[in-house]
Computed example of a mutant assay.
Amino acid sequence: MRLFGLIGMPLAQSFSKKYFTEKFEKEGIADSMYELFPLEEIHQLSDLLLRHSNLEGLNVTIPYKEQVLPYLHAIDEEAKAIGACNCIKIKDGKLTGFNTDAPAFRESLLQQLQPHHNKALVLGTGGAAKAVVHVLRGLGIPFTYVSRSSGSGLVYEELSREIMEEYPLIINTTPLGSFPKVDTAPAIPYEYLTERHYLYDLVYNPAKTLFLQQGEERGATIKNGYEMLVGQAELSWKIWNT
C-alpha cells in the first residue's frame, strides 16, 4: 500500500486527508492511503520516516514549512527561492522538497485580479506568506508585509486610510478566522475598504471568514483559499507520481 500524509500541528481541521481519501475513492485509486501525522516538534519527522517505510510523499503545513528544510536531501529551485516547502517526495530514502503553494496561489489569485490591484498588503510573515510574496514578485506587484510586531514592513496600527487606498490587494496568510476561532480576524481598519479592494484569504474553513465578510459588506472582491488548496494538492499528487 502506497502511503502519503500531512505533517504539522495542529491537524484536527485538516483539508488534506478528506480531499485525498475522496479523490482515491472517486478515481478508483485502490493502492494508496493518506494519513495525518501531527508532530509536536519537527525532529519527530525522522522517527515518522523510520516507522513508515512505505511513505512516498508528505504535505507540510503550519508551523513546519520552513523548519523542514534542513531535513531535505534536495530541494526544487522554486521552493529554494521561496524558502519554504509544503510538499516532499520520498524515493529511495531521499527527501526532495517542493512548493506547490506558490503556483496554486498564482492561478487562483489571477482569476479575479484587475489591473488596479497593483499593490499588496501581505498579512503575516510565515511560510505561506513566503509563497505569496514569491508570486507577487513574479507578477510585478509591489507588496508590504503587515504583522503584529515591527521588524519587516508595517504593524497593524500603522494602517491609515491613505495606506489602505494605496494598497487595494490585501492577502491574509495568517490562520486568523479559521475554524473553530471564526470570530477572529486580522486587525486591519475595515472601514477604509471599498469596491476597489480585493481581499484574498488563504483560510478556507469557514468559506467566508470574518475578514472576507467585512470586505464583502463594503463591496470588495473576495476569495478564500479553497481553490489554492485543491490546486496545491493536485500538484503534490503529480509530483509524487512522476
Rank of each mutant, 00 (worst) to 15 (best):
F4V: 12
F4T: 13
G5C: 13
M9T: 14
P10T: 11
F24K: 09
D31R: 10
D31M: 05
S32E: 13
Y34F: 15
F37K: 11
F37A: 13
L45Q: 02
L48V: 14
H52I: 12
E56D: 09
V60M: 01
V60C: 03
V60S: 01
V68D: 00
H73F: 03
E77A: 15
E78I: 13
K80Y: 10
I82A: 07
N86K: 01
C87E: 02
L95I: 02
F98M: 03
N99Y: 03
T100I: 01
R106T: 07
S108R: 00
A120W: 10
L123A: 03
T125M: 10
G127K: 02
G127A: 07
A129R: 01
H134T: 07
V135K: 01
L136S: 10
R137M: 12
P142K: 11
Y145A: 01
R148V: 04
G151W: 04
L154N: 11
L154F: 15
S160K: 10
E162V: 09
M164N: 07
E165I: 09
E165V: 10
N172L: 06
T173F: 07
S178V: 07
P180R: 05
P180Q: 05
T184I: 06
A187G: 08
I188N: 08
P189W: 09
Y190C: 10
L199S: 10
L202K: 03
V203D: 03
N205M: 08
K208E: 15
F211A: 08
E217G: 08
R218T: 05
N224Y: 07
N224I: 06
E227G: 14
Q232Y: 04
A233F: 05
N241S: 12
